[in-house]
Amino acid sequence: MSILQAIKNKVRSRSIHVSYVDVGSCNGCDIEVLACLAPRYDIEQYGIFVHNNPREADVLIVIGAYTHGWEEKLAPLWEKIPDPKAAIAIGNCPISGCCFDRRGSYVDPPVSKHIPIAAEVPGCPPRPTEILNAILSVRDLVFADWEVKRR
């Protein structure tokens, strides 16, 4: 591993930009993501910065059961994120649809049908610690040595 790669790994591990997108949730998971930003869990102490610009993001957090309004929006949004990138599904909804996935409802879970999902955090809603741990583990798996792995 070259020194340049080592520097990149070091920098990337402390500089994760997160963009989150709610594709039709009940807001329960949004509140938990919000709790990550608050001082108690303080996501920024790990160098994770949340702002909702996919062009600057490394990690896309997907919340919700995928309503049909996102049909032509979520995939282009995923395309806009520059490599290396990873999507994390937060909560039961993007994994299984949870209580919304029943006959006659206008949702289309799981989200992994529509964009590649790197990690899933089950729970209704998941704890902020679980969300944080997912982001941190994805960071180590996806972003470390990314140029080496791509070759």
């Binding site: 039961n92 994994i95 299984s96 949870c98 209580c99 899933e120 089950p122 729970g123 209704c124």
Partner: peptide, 8 residues
């Protein structure tokens, strides 16, 4: 228990 369905 099926994770992803269980709401705990």
């Amino acid at each position: 228990i099926h994770k992803g369905h269980c709401i705990r």
